[in-house]
Design a protein around this nucleic acid. Structure first.
Length: 369
DNA sequence: CAGTCGTGGAC
DNA sequence: TGTCCAAGACT
């Protein structure tokens, strides 16, 4: 990847107008009103692949419950996951929790100031480490998130796929060279603000952009075509079933393994329906599942609700059955019986949370289920 | 190193 | 409605 060098002239055309724009039009965000590295770290983790408006309420709730690194480190993972419920990418919560424990045991419960120590923490990669070091500790380390990548690809009219290794390396170099030594923290937040509010993926507001006159993509009329995006892949669709097994006022739930999809969250027992199974065999699969896993040979079950859900890499139709039984089968880990009133204390995935909500609402309306 | 990992906003 | 994709990291 060969490009013109980033020299002082380019820095003047880019960095200075950007900083000026940020000081008058930058966003007022809660993690910009603190110098607590823990809060800044938390915001960076929550904002990975997540929009500001989505993360905001989670950020406030999280800090109310875990105001310090020590408080987070001594919490149960399940309590952390409960606060993360609905935010997605739950490995972030798991890594955050583990990193807090590492900080308490090895770093006096403080975020270290060396890049090597920070990036070694779970859940912190090159970009997040750069952001924490620069914003929380006043250092000067580049980042290359979606915003910076898009802004740079447009400003320099990079007409190649930024996922190519050589292009990615050049963008990192470029991001580093553009950083001002003295105002690095404001600069980072400025370029992210620009990407999030002006230089947006579709229909960028170039007339509001402080560097419009120097933007190569704008000059070439390529601003909506860059950066080059990967062709979208078709995501497969799978059928799942889940059973709300009820005895009196209790229901049976199961905790997911601590690795993989929705790790550590609770759900109503069930599994994916085999790929080649026919229509109508879902009930048969459901009966077989409860017979084999829980020894239930009778089945007083009926369809309860159907939930459509989209994950990153597949779509799911979740067929939910309501299932009454006289006696509680023994619940061995990872299974557990819980009263309906206490269901909402457990962290569920969004799809299964819809079931929890339905059960809770029915109860509040005085109906059985 | 390409696949995995969630969810919701915006259009 | 479908489509893109958001302050990426981990394997």
């Amino acid at each position: 990847m060969i490009k013109n060098p980033i020299d002082a002239a380019v820095r003047r055309r880019f960095t200075a107008p950007l900083l000026e724009w940020y000081h008058s039009l930058g966003r007022d965000l809660p993690w910009r009103r603190t110098d607590d590295p823990y809060c800044i770290w938390l915001s960076e983790i929550m904002l990975q692949q997540t929009q500001v408006v989505t993360a905001l309420p989670y950020y406030h709730r999280f800090l109310e419950t875990f105001p310090t690194i020590k408080a987070l480190a001594s919490a149960d993972l399940e309590a952390v996951l409960k606060l993360w419920q609905g935010l997605g990418y739950y490995a972030r919560a798991r890594h955050l929790h583990r990193a807090a424990q590492i900080l308490v045991s090895q770093f006096s419960a403080k975020m270290p100031e060396s890049f090597e120590s920070v990036i070694a923490l779970p859940g912190i990669g090159r970009s997040t480490a750069g952001a924490i070091l620069t914003i929380a500790h006043g250092k000067c380390h580049p980042i290359l998130d979606g915003n910076v990548r898009r802004v740079l690809c447009r400003f320099f009219a990079i007409e190649r796929d930024p996922r190519e290794k050589s292009v990615d390396a050049w963008l990192w170099h470029c991001s580093e060279m553009l950083m001002p030594k003295h105002n690095a923290s404001h600069y980072l937040q400025a370029i992210m603000d620009l990407g999030a509010t002006v230089c947006v993926p579709k229909q960028p507001s170039c007339t509001r952009c402080p560097v419009e006159k120097s933007c190569a993509a704008r000059k070439k009329g390529l601003e909506t075509l860059l950066p080059i995006r990967a062709p979208s892949k078709k995501v497969p669709h799978y059928d799942y079933f889940a059973g709300v097994l009820c005895v009196d006022n209790a229901v049976l739930i199961r905790r997911r393994p601590l690795k993989g999809l929705l790790a550590g969250l609770w759900e109503f027992p069930g599994e994916r329906v085999a790929e080649n199974s026919k229509q109508g065999s879902i009930v048969l699969a459901y009966e077989r599942f409860f017979r084999e896993h829980l020894g239930l040979d009778t089945c007083e079950c009926k369809p309860y609700m159907t939930i459509q859900h989209v994950f990153t890499h597949f779509k799911m139709t979740l067929h939910v059955f309501l299932h009454h039984s006289k006696k509680r089968v023994e619940a061995v880990f990872p299974f557990d019986w819980v009263e309906r009133e206490t269901l909402s204390e457990r962290p569920f995935s969004s799809a299964h949370q819809k079931i929890v909500l339905q059960l809770t609402q029915k109860q509040n309306q005085g109906e059985l289920f």
